[in-house]
Amino acid sequence: MEPAGGRRAGSGPARRSPGVIARRLSGALVVLAVLVFLFFLPWWVLLAGGTAWPSPIEITGGVLFAAALVAFPVSMALGHGRRQWDAAARTGDTILGVIWVLFAWSAIGGVLRLALAAAGVSGPTVARSVAVAVAVVAVALLVWGYTEAMRLPRVRRVEVTLPRLGPGLDGTRVVVLADTHYGPIDRARWSARVVDAVNALEPDIVCHAGDIADGSIAKRREQAAPLGRVRPRLARVYVTGNHEYLGEAQGWLDEMARLGWESLHNRHVVVERGGDRLVLAGVDDRTAASSGLAGHRADLPRALAEVTPDLPVLLVAHQPKQVAQAVAAGVDLQVSGHTHGGQIWPFHYLVRVDQPVVQGLSRHGERTQLYTSRGAGYWGPPFRIFAPSEISLLVLRSAA
């Protein structure tokens, strides 16, 4: 008779098949190769590629790169893994941002050196000049990017005409918050200032489009608490983002409900003004189905169940790519976040491969419009470079 675990008593741990082991090993090797290349290129451009720096500079720089290469995966594992050590997360996130900026500008510096060499201009002096230029630009961008990440987001105002919107709702002010990402750096005071800025806009509706925090509710509750002071005239609604499904998705739905928000877990509410009505619907993030949480998946038909067909619909869905379902359902306007506008240039090119839109207002199909916010906060690296944060104010206009 076998024990409940399905293995014979005394048989020891179940053995993984050779195929599974090979796939995991190949995946680990790919990650290692990418990581090494990410560090190798800046090291080569700044220190080793014909720069002929004095030995103390080469040795010191090499030691710093090697230490960062080792510290990065360790701190990311300790900070974002099971232990959730915020100090380690801050270290790993910062290294990631720094090395990404150095990599991007080292690539540009490498291309510049190749162009100069093709023109017959080369040698240690040229190599050192390019290295210094790359280092100066990177440091300047990192300082500026950190300031941008920590500042109060700018307000971005956009008028959106919805032909089916009744005249009683013309001028409705919808504020979109997305990607607050309360995390290892305590931003409780920043959160309070964001709420003050939202209230100053005198919104009718406030939507939080997901990715509220990274980490447990117990750790991030103080940072999220100011959201309870948001005061719209008609409604404040919230949907889950993909980062909620890395932790306590149902817990955040419950916490936001406790703070007085309508958690749109595949459901809708209807707001009314001047005799006209607007449906506010929300769906779970598209990653919810693979989370293993019972009852969690993006279910737009359920969210729109019993909605009167002639009513305009504003859908809150975390990822822009969820707009395909919105188009099929005849949604008038979808508001999303997720992309951060790329957050750190030139990452937006990679985001565009995965998402239909990186930021701003776009049209999809005959009826559906999509507004993609660059987000109020940041994920991971505490930098925003050429992708400013925003609080989005959408003023809805009726064609009538």
Rank of each mutant, 00 (worst) to 15 (best):
H296A: 14
G282D: 02
P309S: 10
H265W: 14
V307C: 06
P309G: 07
S291W: 10
L304Q: 00
L259K: 10
L278T: 01
S291C: 08
R302M: 11
W261D: 00
A289P: 04
T287L: 06
R267L: 01
R273Y: 06
L304V: 06
S263W: 06
D284Y: 10
A289C: 04
D310C: 04
P301Q: 08
H265A: 15
V307W: 08
A303W: 07
G274C: 12
E272Q: 14
D276I: 09
A305T: 05
P309H: 12
R297C: 04
L259Y: 09
E306S: 13
T308D: 13
R286L: 13
E272S: 15
V279I: 08
E272D: 10
R273E: 08
A288T: 10
V307Q: 00
R302A: 15
P309L: 14
A289E: 09
A257G: 15
L300V: 04
G274E: 09
R258Y: 08
S263I: 01
V269S: 07
S291Y: 08
L280S: 00
R286P: 04
E306G: 04
D310R: 13
V283C: 02
P301V: 12
E262H: 09
E272V: 09
L280D: 02
S290V: 10
L264P: 01
L259A: 10
E272Y: 13
T287Q: 07
G275E: 07
D276G: 00
H265G: 02
R297N: 06
R297H: 14
R273G: 08
L300C: 05
R258D: 12
G275R: 15
A257K: 11
R297T: 03
H265F: 10
G295K: 13
A288R: 09
V271P: 02
G282L: 03
L278G: 00
W261T: 08
W261P: 05
L300H: 02
P309N: 12
A294T: 15
D284Q: 09
V270F: 06
L300E: 06
R302I: 03
D310L: 08
V307P: 05
A303S: 10
H268Y: 00
L264N: 04
L304W: 08
V279E: 03
D284F: 09
S290A: 15
G295R: 13
T287R: 11
T287G: 01
G282K: 02
L293Q: 14
E306V: 01
R277A: 01
A281G: 03
A257I: 03
T308Q: 15
A294Y: 13
A281P: 03
E272C: 11
G295Q: 10
V279K: 08
L300S: 02
L259I: 06
G282T: 00
R277V: 02
A289S: 14
A281H: 01
R286Q: 12
S263A: 15
E262M: 05
W261L: 12
R277L: 07
E306P: 00
S290H: 11
V269P: 00
R258G: 12
L264E: 00
P309A: 10
G295I: 15
A303P: 04
